[in-house]
Nucleic acid binder design. Structure first.
Length: 426
DNA sequence: TCTGGGGTCCTAGGACCC
DNA sequence: TCTGGGGTCCTAGGACCC
């Protein structure tokens, strides 16, 4: 069998410690140093450099709990800067598309690629080329795993992360059992905390054991998703590559507050501005929403002050993305669910039942709607040019005492002229 | 004092109908 | 008066992902 083989191949490209890598790009001093990036509100650690991992700092750990290690070891700390990460992500994805336009952007730092059009023999080399091109063009280091199914490409990627070349192909490997045996069950894609507990109770501790379990048992005792995972471990593709970006089905904006909020007025400001934010998102994607949910809650970690969490959904008479209407509705919901005497920690809004703005079937459309639409568009344009909340509604407040904490921001903005690095001649 | 945000999908259970 | 079965649709909540 020397003929060239073209079996189905899926590549998973994953950026290494993505947020940390983004910060390093603009700050070479922190290369090879321990670095962490914090979540919104400087709450948790959500990205770690290898050096930080080696210190025992855990993913998702609350910042204040890791502070001792961080200070003792001079770990560099950054608040998250999502516009920077989003921008660099787009650059990485654009680069990947040069190799194959059939990619599925799976998250901000990950993409699946259909590599079936490369032969089995050459695919690993292609992976290396992709990796070095992304590194050269964007400065972001990646790991690439290649295999017959998405789930196996995740496994391959896992292995690639630990190698120096950063590329691992499982294509052409006859027996995967020795490899799968070393993959702990909780590291399998699609197996979370609950399933791990369940599998372990049934004597399944690694990917090989899951692979060898009968489908009927898995389907009966768990669900179809789990049986798909097992099939994929056997090399049978069950989870398709989603090449076309499908329209989203919901849109959420929620934040924890920088300080606990107690009075209605401040809560109202927060909800109004989240609602403005989300409405703008809808308009930018030409979507309208059928329903709006507002939720508030106190901290689940500090129940000594009493715990309260509530939400309510209201349907719009006609699907909309008009900020004036959505904010009015949001505030009326908030009035319903707000309870005096609690220290609120978080609030949010969610739009659901989204559909395309153009085919909104509105028998009652009239000139007034047209006017409002035009007004919204010009608000969006102004805010795009001069910064968010240049134009806003009064209920969103001006001072925003509740606004989130960001004490370690690198303040890098790839769209900001003043952030361009200066080169000094000696 | 301090514990993220934004998604998707599945399932169980209730309401309703014939 | 009591007794069925089966179908659809919706919703809330849970599990998972990054």
């Amino acid at each position: 069998m020397s003929s060239t083989q073209y079996t189905k191949k899926i590549g998973l490209v994953d950026c290494n410690s993505f947020y940390v890598s983004c910060e390093r790009l603009f700050n070479p001093k922190i290369k090879r140093k321990p670095v962490v990036v914090l979540s919104n509100n400087d709450g948790c650690i959500i990205s770690r450099s290898n050096e930080a991992k080696a210190l025992g700092i855990k993913m998702g750990e609350p910042y204040f709990k890791a502070k001792d290690i961080i200070i003792k070891n001079n770990v560099n700390v950054f608040s998250s800067n999502y516009s920077l990460y989003g921008d660099l992500s787009r650059r990485v994805m654009r680069t990947l598309k040069r190799f194959n336009s059939d990619i599925e952007i799976y998250s901000i730092d990950e993409a699946f690629m259909d590599l079936s059009n490369f032969s089995d023999k050459e695919v690993e080399e292609v992976g290396k080329e992709i990796r070095s091109t992304v590194l050269k063009w964007t400065g972001i280091p990646t790991s690439i795993g290649i295999a017959k199914t998405k789930t196996l490409s995740k496994v391959a990627n896992h292995i690639a992360k630990k190698t120096k070349v950063g590329v691992t192909s499982l294509i052409g490997v006859e027996n995967l059992d020795p490899i799968l045996e070393k993959v702990e069950i909780n590291d399998v894609w699609g197996v979370g905390r609950q399933l791990t507990k369940f599998y372990q109770k049934n004597g399944i501790y690694n990917a090989k054991q899951l692979k060898n379990k009968s489908n009927t048992w898995i389907k009966k005792c768990s669900n179809v998703l789990s049986s798909r995972t097992a099939m994929e471990l056997r090399g049978i593709p069950c989870i398709e590559l989603e090449k076309t970006t499908s329209k989203r089905k919901s849109c959420v904006v929620s934040r924890s507050f920088g300080k606990r909020v107690e009075n209605f007025q401040e809560l109202k400001e927060a909800v109004a501005s989240y609602c403005l934010n989300a409405s703008e998102k809808l308009r930018s994607e030409n979507l309208v929403a059928k329903a709006l949910t507002v939720f508030v809650r106190t901290s689940p970690f500090q129940r000594s002050f009493g715990y309260y969490s509530n939400s309510k959904t209201i349907d719009f008479p006609v699907a909309t993305n008009n900020s004036i209407e959505t904010v009015k509705t949001a505030i009326s919901i908030l009035q319903d669910i707000y309870k005096n005497g609690y220290r609120y920690q978080k609030a949010g809004v969610m739009f659901s039942g989204l559909s395309n703005e153009d085919n909104k079937n509105n028998l009652f459309a009239c000139e007034k709607d047209e006017k409002i639409n035009r007004l919204m568009r010009s608000i969006d344009k102004t805010n795009y040019r001069f910064g968010r909340s240049t134009l806003s509604v009064a209920s969103a407040g001006i001072r925003k005492k509740w606004f989130m904490k960001r004490e370690h921001s690198s303040k890098i903005d790839t769209a900001d002229f003043y952030c361009i690095p200066t080169i000094k001649a000696f």
